[in-house]
Computed example of a mutant assay.
Amino acid sequence: MPFLTIAFPVFDPIAIAIGPIAIRWYALAYIGGIVLGWIYARSLLKNEKLWGGPAPITLPQLDDFILWVTVGIILGGRTGYVLFYNLSFFVAHPAEIFELWKGGMSFHGGFLGCVAAVIWFCRKNQLPILSLGDITTAVGPIGLFLGRLANFINSELWGRPADPSLPWAMVFPNGGPLPRHPSQLYEAGLEGILLFTILAVMIRLGALRRPGLILGSFIALYGLARITGECFREPDPQLGFLWGGLTMGMLLSVPMVIAGAVLIVMAWRRNHPKQVPAEGRP
């Protein structure tokens, strides 16, 4: 092993085991992301200054929406993985579509599931779709960060071979003898920490007063972050590199960048931010 290469710290993929019941880190990442996202979303809805008045969504409505978006994430994520990443395998083994504990989720599918949940819930409850979309995507990076950490713990979705002199290059136990980029940590930083920070700053500057601005920014910035991360990530073995050296993750992210940019322009042109009356003003 090269002198500067880091040996991967092997983790037990099972976080908690009580008798025959085993809870994996990946499941905890989903649970933690949803719970922390719910808490953060409630704090945003309570802060009227961010909206220029009362938020268009009540706290009880947000609480009801959590179940909807959870189902959307799971169904969309699994469906996306089946269709985008391993369709031929699941056509031959359809029963394994339902074996979620074996892994296999797609962010892009999960995102589409969230979109469906937002639209359906808003139509049922007569809520503004763009504002609920803003809240949902504002908290999204929390789950993305935890999910990428779970990928790292599971030693999956590791990076491409790296220069052995790279101080943080790692030899993953199931990635062969070559030192590789810890691309899961790169993506945790880009899709989680950086994206959350940018959206949080935008919110503090009044972005929630322009419905669709946070939603569009999340979509566009995630697409750019994912494309960047894919430059260091080993493509899925059943797919490999596609046209011109692109990966499936890159191809699925390009439409996100375009759609996000369109939403940003529309949000910016549609409404001017509401003005919060100054204290003492009649």
Rank of each mutant, 00 (worst) to 15 (best):
F3K: 13
L75P: 03
K124R: 15
F89I: 06
I73N: 07
G245S: 10
G109C: 06
G245L: 09
F84Y: 07
Y30P: 05
P164H: 06
I214C: 08
V71Y: 09
A259I: 13
F90G: 02
G133E: 15
N151W: 01
A162F: 04
L185K: 02
L130Q: 15
L127S: 12
I21A: 06
E187A: 01
L178F: 14
A162S: 09
A17S: 08
S217Y: 05
L28D: 03
G212H: 06
R209S: 10
F241Q: 13
T247Y: 06
V201D: 07
I153P: 08
F98Y: 09
L146W: 08
P179A: 07
A29S: 05
G33T: 00
F65H: 00
Q238D: 15
F172C: 00
I153H: 05
P164K: 08
P177W: 09
N151A: 00
Y222K: 04
A200V: 08
L59H: 07
Q184M: 13
I193S: 11
F196Y: 13
V139G: 14
G189P: 03
G133R: 13
L44K: 00
R42E: 05
A92C: 10
G216P: 10
G140V: 14
V265Q: 14
I97G: 07
G240N: 12
I66Q: 04
G159S: 06
G175K: 02
K124H: 13
P60E: 12
S165E: 13
G189C: 03
A225L: 08
C122E: 14
R270Y: 15
R123D: 12
F232M: 04
Q238H: 15
M248W: 09
L208F: 14
G77C: 03
V276P: 11
A150R: 02
V82A: 06
I66K: 00
S183H: 00
G110M: 07
G206C: 10
M248N: 12
I214Y: 09
G110Y: 15
P13A: 04
G192Q: 05
G280V: 12
L166H: 09
R24F: 05
G240D: 08
L242G: 11
R210F: 01
I39D: 02
A188G: 05
T197Q: 11
Y40F: 10
E48A: 03
G175Y: 02
R160C: 08
C231L: 15
S106G: 07
V262Q: 12
T79D: 07
A22E: 08
G76I: 01
W268Q: 15
L100S: 10
A92M: 12
F84G: 06
L87E: 06
P2Q: 02
I34C: 07
L190P: 06
P164M: 10
Q126M: 14
W268T: 12
A162K: 07
G176A: 11
A41Q: 02
R160Y: 04
G76D: 02
